[in-house]
Design a binder for these strands. Structure first.
Length: 804
DNA sequence: AGCACGCCGACT
DNA sequence: GTCGGCGTGCTC
């Protein structure tokens, strides 16, 4: 007898363990760990993951697995173990860990159906009766529209109705019907004579098979080619001459797209030195972490491509992570161009179904390389030869919901399991990674030169306070104006970055200082030109733009801050002849809009590309010779100890967009704090100094990489409750952490209220604290009941990326 | 998380 | 006396 340990799809602390089930006789040979199954769980049915098969169990009254969902495991043994590791590292539920590894399409959906099992339809109340006229099963949702649950319940108790719990899949494999000939062509010819002469279409179909020497053909194609109808085909199938089969097909997001084949480029001296140790590690199957620190344009990608080539030639597989790849279609081109059909692409721009199909290609070992965003790190490869994380410093590698994992940590874990190298690449590495490379934990590979030997574009810092004193009240400094006009005349292109994060346009009364805030969140509402609305970015609350101040009824109510829309308006005024493309959430939320806009810009159908963060990454257009940063310092004022680091990274990256090819580039950075070191140092491309300066600060303030951080956030509609719970947590932590661990708080979160819930937090700074995970878990367990019954929420983020 | 069970108040 | 509220505890 075989028993299966199953992790059920119920996200709760009490169910966060394996439950044992009997494996029915007929599936004993089929089952294996990593498969999804449907199991009875209490009165209902749920999906679950088999994590173990065993011949023994402690539990006596076992139920049986009711269904198999997979015929091949969707989780490899390695991934099952990785799930265990993830739950420990991020304090999440086991199911959540497994679900994070799989495409969303594979998450189960649950529905309840009511079936009539009585004798007389008349026995049902008249409200319910009509539903069952002509059918036995009805969706509970439909009946609930007219009847109360209690009414239905009564019928269940007296045996007229029953509830059936159904588990459904979100998306399924897309299939086409394929028609095959059952026998050889000579046998087909013989069949011809047996077919009645008046069945002309049947003859046509058989002839079609014979003359075209067809083994199989999609049904649709066969019908259109022979002008036959499907009944004719059915007749032949029932005669056994033809066979029908459902064949899985892939929704290919890159269908109909040609990718120009590219060949390896010769590597320069630096690149060769960088690739050497990587190739060595691949060859010798060594787990090593490399930090490839290479300035923008130094040819990191070519090093990736050639290392991958080596991995694939050895018959192994590779994962390449890129930050939100839809932002860099150019990147997809480079990988598809070099490795063609060996590549699967996974990113947020794909539909659920497309993502599922790409994942299936990996599972079925039809590809050897996956290029994708964060979650692609879980690609179910079994012979990994290398993992690459490009733009290692990008914050999108950290998932901001449970499980709060960092792709870099997962990559290193998997690298160890597979004995393969992990390559982290960046022009502006995180302090954490660079510090590790200094300590020799990671091996540092440096690329100092740009491949085309071009210098980095020269950077001019403009003091906007000075501009204001000189009477320039616009958002463009005189210098930036000059240069934009100049580019326009020379038919060169400009990229304008509006660094908006943490600083959106809000409405303020000039007389009394009143700011329109969200009634549910402690945050000011954001002004949206479209529809003249004020919107809350946290809960979605909307209200119309007021004409007068709600507080003092003054008419001097204005919006402050600058949105891309407003910049665009002003640009149109001062440079009427310029063609502008604006890229922000509003213009890119449609699928493919992003790529379209970029293509348009690339084809020089516009002179200026104006956008937020999203334009800072990976764009490479030869005619861009000017980059303007409208307000460099907005990010600096955020309550985030990484603010300076992030500002430096952003400025360096966006500067790298200029002058990548023949034409030299220039950068203008506008700021109100020109003296700030991260602005100064980014203008000199001086990462080393930034590293030293910032490390000093992190040391004095006990921040990463000197200390690890854990952030506990408590929220509840009642502020008193929040404060007291956070206080309790802090006290408990103080009593149970290591000596050199520091506890800060309780304090109100930077956004003290979201969706009518008050938020408090406490920060744990620790160096080595082996029991901290256990202590934190105990806290969660202690409040578990209140978290389910009372509206309490406690979230723990280990190594948070943001303090918000 | 869901769902059943079980124990109390307010109604036919 | 029952209906219907919510606290409690279990799910292989």
């Amino acid at each position: 007898m075989k028993y299966a340990s199953v992790i059920v799809d119920v996200q709760a602390m009490q169910t966060d363990r394996a439950f044992d089930y009997k494996v029915p006789e007929e599936w004993q040979q089929l089952v294996s760990p990593g498969m999804r199954v449907i199991v009875p769980f209490g009165p209902r049915k749920v999906q679950g993951f088999i994590v173990e098969l065993k011949n023994q169990t402690d539990y006596e009254k076992l139920k049986s697995i009711s269904d198999l969902v997979d015929l091949t495991p969707c989780l490899t043994t390695e991934l099952i173990e990785l799930g265990q590791w993830l739950t420990e590292k991020t304090l999440c539920f086991k199911v959540s860990a497994f679900q994070a590894m799989l495409p969303a399409a594979m998450k189960a959906k649950y529905e309840k159906v009511i079936r009539f099992i009585g004798d007389e339809l008349e026995a049902l109340p008249f409200t319910i009766r009509p539903f069952f006229e002509g059918k036995i099963e009805v969706d509970l949702k439909d009946i609930e529209q007219v009847a109360s649950f209690r009414e239905i319940h009564k019928e269940i108790e007296c045996g007229n109705l029953e509830v059936i719990y159904k588990v459904k899949q979100k998306t399924n494999k897309k299939t086409v019907k394929v028609i095959k000939a059952s026998e050889t062509f000579s046998a087909l010819s013989e069949h011809l004579s047996a077919i009645p002469a008046n069945a002309k279409k049947q003859h046509d179909i058989i002839h079609y098979f014979i003359t075209n020497r067809l083994n199989e053909i999609p049904l649709q194609l066969l019908l259109s080619e022979t002008k036959a109808s499907d009944t004719t085909v059915k007749a032949l199938i029932s005669k056994g001459i033809l066979q029908e089969e459902n064949r899985e097909i892939y929704r290919d997001p890159y269908e109909n797209r040609e990718f120009e084949k590219t060949n390896p480029l010769p590597l320069n001296e630096e690149q060769q030195q960088a690739i050497g140790p990587i190739i060595h590690a691949i060859d010798k199957k060594l787990h090593e972490v490399f930090l490839m620190y290479g300035v923008t344009g130094s040819g990191k990608t070519e090093v990736y491509l050639q290392s991958i080539d080596k991995v694939l030639k050895e018959g192994r597989e590779a994962i390449v992570l890129v930050p939100e790849i839809s932002l860099t279609p150019q990147m997809v081109h480079r990988f598809k161009g070099r490795f063609g059909s060996k590549v699967a692409v996974l990113h947020s721009g794909l539909s659920t179904g497309e993502k599922y199909d790409e994942w299936r290609k990996i599972q079925r070992k039809e590809v050897q390389l996956v290029v994708g965003a964060r979650s692609a790190i879980f690609a179910p490869f079994e012979k990994l030869g290398m993992i690459i994380i490009d733009e290692e410093h990008e914050s999108s590698y950290k998932q901001e919901e449970n499980p709060r994992y960092h792709a870099r940590d997962v990559a290193i874990y998997r690298g160890k399991q597979h004995n393969c190298p992990v390559v982290l690449g960046s022009a502006t590495p995180t302090l954490e990674s660079f510090a590790r490379s200094q300590k020799g934990v990671y091996k540092l590979l440096t690329l100092k030169e740009r491949v085309n030997k071009r210098n980095m574009p020269s950077v001019e810092i403009v003091d906007m306070r000075e501009e204001l004193r000189n009477g320039n009240r616009s958002m463009f400094s005189a210098s930036l104006m000059d240069k934009m006009t100049d580019r326009l005349n020379k038919h060169e292109q400009t990229v304008l970055l509006l660094n908006k994060r943490g600083y959106s346009s809000f409405v303020m009364c000039r007389d009394c200082g009143y700011v329109n805030g969200c009634p549910h969140c402690d945050i000011s509402l954001t002004y949206h030109l479209r529809g003249q609305q004020l919107k809350c970015h946290y809960c979605g609350y909307e209200e119309p733009l007021p004409n007068t101040c709600p507080e003092c009824e003054s008419e001097h109510i204005r919006y402050f801050g600058t949105g891309t829309q407003k910049v665009e308006e002003e640009l149109v005024k001062i440079l009427p002849e310029a063609r502008i493309i604006r890229m922000d959430v509003d213009t890119t939320n449609r699928k493919g809009a992003h790529e379209k806009l970029l293509t348009k810009f690339g084809q020089k159908q516009a002179d200026i590309l104006l956008g937020t963060q999203m334009i800072a990454k990976g764009l490479d257009f030869p005619d861009v010779t000017l980059v303007g940063v409208l307000t460099a310092d907005t990010m600096l004022n955020l309550p985030d100890f990484r603010a300076s680091e992030k500002t430096f990274q952003l400025l360096t990256q966006v500067s790298g967009r200029a002058g990548r090819h023949e034409l030299p580039g220039e950068v203008v950075i506008q700021t109100y704090t020109p003296e700030h070191y991260s602005i100064q140092l980014s203008s000199q491309y001086d990462y080393d100094s930034l590293f030293r300066h910032e490390m000093q600060l992190r040391k004095t303030h006990a921040y990463p990489p000197y200390y690890f951080i854990a952030l506990v956030t408590v929220s509840h509609p009642d502020i008193m409750k929040v404060v007291s719970v956070t206080e309790t947590i802090v006290q408990y932590l103080r009593r149970n952490v290591a000596n050199d661990t520091r506890i800060l708080g309780p304090v109100a979160s930077p956004i003290p209220r979201i969706k009518d819930r008050y938020r408090y937090q406490c920060m744990v700074k620790y160096k080595r604290d082996n029991d901290l995970h256990i202590t934190l878990r105990k806290i969660l367990e202690h409040f578990q009941q209140e978290m389910t019954t009372n509206q309490l929420m406690i979230s723990v983020d280990l190594n948070p990326n943001t303090m918000m």
